[in-house]
Design a protein around this nucleic acid. Structure first.
Lengths: 229, 229
DNA sequence: AGATATCTGCTCATCAGACAAGTTAAATTG
DNA sequence: CAATTTAACTTGTCTGATGAGCAGATATCT
């Protein structure tokens, strides 16, 4: 540790703003000082204020809304490192349960909203998966598989959904690998992905939802089987 | 390129830089492109590059040394969910869409799995909400509301789901506040929460799912109305 | 009067260019 | 050769201008 390094003005500004929030009787949701006011108060330029605010935003202390101002956010108490460990060790079945809630609906939205570019990208991911099916490069397979699922989420134009899928598929990659090691699973995945893609291409939300559900529950039961056997 | 629009340039730059690092065969400790090079590469000004780099620095992806350059850092051992909450600047409508996917199912699971302690806790949250309804303490109201939703997720015994709900309700608090400012919304919330709780208490998953869906869509349409009016 | 449209003044977002300050390595000088 | 200076990078900060989102006041029309 090395607490004596705070050369940057923006870092000093971060500290100053943090104490201002702490001592200023702000309730989460309250409007805070504007960038200009902060600059005047702290005697630094707007650039530095902006960098400080950016840092505080990433840290979850404030949230910035274009045209409205800077708002005090709920302090991100809970998610500490220990908590994170716990949650990341959640069982693969918990993850699957959540995926089976989210992904079919994502496929539904995708079938009704995806544009041509997104479709192309999904097709490419499917193709890539097929091309790597015979080879030994499991990492490429896992990536192509994750890409496909992520692209569906992305094509819904819903940012929250997209980030959600991104983290879900990433944190699942280990479990995913084991599932692709199950004999026959790769071939099934190709077929199931194809069915999902077809439904999305046909703009048939219900079918896309159903095919995605089938894909996930197939994978899950294969994993179950390979574990109990 | 990016189907998810209306994002800040600096955010786009963050994504671009992240993929550059990922695809650029960088080993932690390697020097990365300079701010000027990045600006030229990404076609944005140095200010935006700097904000992007600041974000990436706080997230632990790069480290910046005055006079030396930008260096790629050890990736912070994939704590995916925390990353997601940080990335999350999506609109309230995106959040709601996702909540309307997840929460009804959560209520469904809760109705079939919740134990007595969880039920007690939910009842208490509802009661707390009612008690604070008349007062001016909006923060307490928001907390009680969030608690109720989080407790439902927790009672499913699915860690992943619980963590998800925790982050969703926290990052939404500011939008939540505005929704509770809408005339009549508080009373409706009391009624709707009550209906959900009853269904869970009666161990009626379908009804719990339906009531939760109704609660969320009511809130959403109230917010929509208050915005267009 | 009431509804509608415009204007105005806030906010954050981005840009371009300048200069200060830290670092590094080549060029200069003894 | 060795020490010093210089030059050319780097990030850090500042300034001032413009764009864009938002909200309330003002003006206009029906």
């Amino acid at each position: 540790m090395d607490p004596i390094r705070k050369t940057r003005l923006s870092e000093q500004a971060v500290e100053a703003i943090e104490t201002m929030i702490a001592q200023g009787n702000y309730v989460p949701g309250d409007r805070f000082l504007s960038e200009n006011e902060l600059g005047k108060e702290l005697q630094v330029s707007r650039s530095s204020v902006r960098e400080a605010v950016r840092i505080l935003e990433v840290r979850g202390r404030v949230s910035v809304l274009h045209g409205k101002g800077i708002f005090v956010a709920e302090p991100p108490e809970g998610n500490s490192f220990a908590e994170w460990i716990r949650d990341n060790r959640a069982s693969i079945f918990d993850h699957f349960e959540v995926r089976m809630i989210i992904e079919p609906k994502a496929a539904w939205y995708s079938a009704s909203k995806a544009d041509q570019d997104s479709l192309k990208a999904m097709e490419k991911a499917c193709q890539l998966f097929e091309e790597n099916a015979g080879k030994e490069d499991m990492a490429a397979l896992v990536k192509a598989d994750g890409d496909f699922h992520r692209l569906i989420a992305r094509s819904t134009n819903n940012r929250t959904l997209y980030f959600l899928m991104k983290t879900m598929t990433r944190s699942l990659s280990e479990g995913w690998i084991t599932s692709l090691h199950i004999p026959g699973r790769i071939k099934k995945t190709i077929r199931e992905h194809g069915a999902i893609l077809d439904a999305i291409r046909d703009r048939d939300p219900e079918r896309a939802e159903g095919e995605m559900m089938r894909h996930l529950s197939n994978a899950l039961s294969d994993i179950r089987d390979s574990m109990t056997r």
